[in-house]
Amino acid sequence: MSLWIWLLVACLLGYLWKLAGYFVPASLLKNPRMSRIAGTMTIGLLASLTIVNTVASGQSVTLDARVGALAAAAIALWLRAPFLVVVLAGAGAAAGLRLMGWN
């Protein structure tokens, strides 16, 4: 199959998945257990996307300035810095490491 057919199938499945959400009873959505599960899934998805974007380069694993940027941002979070400071710490660390030759 061509790429366009797969793209259209993915769009249709995404639309149907979103449409199915409208048919979920409200009583199920107000359940505290369901809120906890949804929150946990969101955290897991964000963590996995962060790691994949940090160490993946195509289909291989690479350790470059992105790992240092993630470490600097993690340290800033651990020190309870505001979000803007966390972003600036990560960006500054990445810029510094790239300047030193860590592509």
Rank of each mutant, 00 (worst) to 15 (best):
12 L>E: 06
12 L>G: 05
12 L>H: 06
13 L>E: 11
15 Y>G: 08
17 W>D: 09
17 W>Q: 10
17 W>H: 08
18 K>D: 08
18 K>F: 10
18 K>V: 07
19 L>P: 03
19 L>N: 07
20 A>K: 05
20 A>G: 11
20 A>D: 10
20 A>L: 13
20 A>M: 11
20 A>Y: 09
21 G>Y: 08
21 G>P: 15
22 Y>R: 15
22 Y>C: 04
22 Y>I: 01
22 Y>G: 15
23 F>P: 02
23 F>A: 13
24 V>F: 12
24 V>A: 09
24 V>W: 14
24 V>E: 13
25 P>W: 05
25 P>A: 04
25 P>C: 03
26 A>L: 14
26 A>E: 15
26 A>D: 14
27 S>P: 05
27 S>G: 06
28 L>R: 15
29 L>W: 12
31 N>S: 06
31 N>I: 01
31 N>G: 01
32 P>D: 03
32 P>Q: 04
32 P>C: 01
33 R>D: 06
33 R>M: 07
34 M>G: 01
34 M>W: 11
34 M>L: 12
35 S>E: 12
35 S>Y: 04
35 S>W: 14
36 R>T: 01
36 R>H: 06
36 R>Y: 09
37 I>F: 11
38 A>W: 11
39 G>Y: 03
40 T>A: 07
40 T>W: 12
40 T>Q: 10
41 M>R: 04
41 M>N: 04
42 T>E: 06
42 T>L: 10
42 T>W: 07
43 I>K: 15
43 I>S: 06
43 I>C: 05
43 I>F: 05
44 G>W: 04
44 G>T: 00
44 G>L: 11
45 L>Q: 02
45 L>G: 00
46 L>C: 00
46 L>I: 00
46 L>F: 00
47 A>L: 09
48 S>W: 10
48 S>G: 00
48 S>K: 08
49 L>C: 00
49 L>R: 04
49 L>Q: 02
50 T>F: 10
50 T>I: 03
51 I>E: 06
51 I>R: 13
51 I>S: 04
51 I>H: 11
52 V>A: 04
52 V>G: 01
53 N>Y: 01
53 N>I: 00
54 T>Y: 11
57 S>W: 14
57 S>G: 04
58 G>C: 04
58 G>P: 13
58 G>R: 14
59 Q>K: 15
59 Q>T: 08
59 Q>H: 14
59 Q>V: 03
60 S>P: 05
61 V>K: 10
61 V>S: 05
61 V>G: 03
62 T>V: 15
62 T>S: 13
62 T>P: 07
63 L>S: 06
63 L>W: 14
63 L>T: 05
64 D>P: 13
64 D>M: 07
65 A>V: 03
65 A>I: 02
65 A>E: 11
66 R>Q: 05
67 V>R: 14
68 G>C: 05
68 G>Q: 08
68 G>S: 03
69 A>M: 12
69 A>C: 02
70 L>F: 11
70 L>I: 00
70 L>W: 12
71 A>W: 01
71 A>H: 01
72 A>I: 01
72 A>K: 02
74 A>H: 03
74 A>R: 01
76 A>G: 06
76 A>T: 02
76 A>H: 03
